[in-house]
């Protein structure tokens, strides 16, 4: 069972839930930049449970494709069940519009084609049985920076042939109700837990950070999302910190940067760490985008604005549980299920 890549799209990679435990070596987890959309695509395709990015689960779920901005053109050499979620790249199957957030039985030799995303930025293709690439350090996720995992550690190219695994369960096509599908707000509110270095900024600057709109720069990718906003300033630093970290007021002695961490390099630009981010860095971090909002961040388009909403540790944890509950309910709705066609409306 194979899929041929006729044209690769702008940046298409094989991803599973991501690779945990190697951040200590500087290897980021990778995995989908919009985890809920990816997990729901797998559920629709009939694959088993897909863990979240930080879940300590040895099985990292079935691998699928993450497509960015402009999706690929693919030929399915054999019939299989698939599902597409995330950004709307207007998929067509042999020229006929194909519903998203819905499981679809694709006949042999069918060609699936995507256009440029008209809402959101990243779409996910899941296939029953998953994309069969070697497991590297516990995961099939592509880490482009480390050049490992996925399909030869790189983006897909025309002429690549992807093998797929054996489907876990027989078919049954289902559609997700609109309430369970991802949405793409015009100006997202990204929830932020302050720290680890919010205490290094002036109080006025912390206030300005949360009060101002921030515009996403085109220089954004899975390593980091750059946002332009107000200039922020820092409190005076101790002499030994200046000596050890550098002359720029935003410099700190390097420490770990979490995924979602917001570096304020030079006080001028906010860089939010993506799923392939560097593990350590030497710029002050004002806060961390909470894990429940990684998906919203991953669907933002260059030029779009966001606001940062301060939350407490308890609110962040409640938001994470609420997201997990939403995914559970969505998957249960498929099992209970309305067959495809009743609630498509994609």
């Amino acid at each position: 069972m194979t899929i041929d890549v006729l044209s690769p799209g702008a940046q298409t990679t094989v991803q599973d839930a991501g690779r945990l435990g190697y951040f200590r070596d500087g290897v980021a987890p990778a995995g989908p930049q919009d985890p809920p959309a990816f997990r729901l695509a797998n559920a629709l395709a009939g694959n088993g449970p897909t863990p979240g990015l930080f879940a300590q689960a040895p099985d990292r779920g079935a691998a699928g494709l993450e497509m960015t901005m402009q999706g690929p053109r693919l030929r399915f050499a054999t019939a299989m069940r698939i599902a597409v979620t995330g950004a709307d790249m207007q998929p067509t199957l042999d020229g006929v519009p194909m519903p998203m957030w819905t499981s679809v039985e694709v006949p042999a030799d069918a060609v699936l084609e995507f256009k440029v995303a008209r809402t959101g930025l990243r779409a996910y293709l899941a296939v029953a049985g998953g994309i069969d690439v070697p497991v590297v350090m516990g995961s099939r996720a592509t880490c482009l920076v480390a050049r490992l995992g996925g399909f030869a550690g790189r983006v897909l190219r025309a002429g690549d042939r992807l093998a797929t695994g054996l489907p876990a369960a027989p078919g049954g096509t289902r559609a997700l109700a609109p309430a369970f599908r991802g949405s793409f707000p015009a100006e997202p509110a990204l929830r932020v837990l302050p720290g680890p270095q919010d205490h290094l900024f002036t109080e006025e600057s912390v206030a300005a950070f949360f009060a101002s709109p921030w515009k996403m720069s085109p220089v954004s990718n899975r390593m980091g999302f750059r946002f332009d906003g107000p200039a922020l300033s820092f409190k005076e630093r101790a002499a030994e910190v200046v000596r050890d970290s550098g002359s720029d007021p935003s410099n700190i002695v390097d420490d770990m940067i979490p995924l979602g961490g917001i570096q304020i390099a030079g006080g001028k630009q906010a860089i939010i760490m993506g799923v392939e981010a560097p593990s350590v860095g030497g710029y002050a971090k004002i806060g961390t985008v909470i894990s429940a909002d990684f998906g919203v961040l991953g669907q933002m388009r260059p030029g779009q604005s966001a606001r940062f909403l301060r939350v407490s540790s308890n609110e962040a944890e409640a938001a994470r549980r609420s997201m997990e509950d939403g995914i559970d309910r969505a998957i249960r709705s498929l099992e209970a299920g309305a067959p495809a066609g009743e609630e498509t409306g994609a």
């Binding site: 990015l53 837990l193 680890p196 101790a238 030994e240 050890d244 770990m256 979490p258 962040a316």
Partner: peptide, 25 residues
Amino acid sequence: MIYQHPQIRQLGDCALAVEFGDEAD
């Protein structure tokens, strides 16, 4: 500075850091 009591710093909802000081010692 070497802190007398290490600081626990919040790094979002899935990470934290135990910080022993702010210089390169």
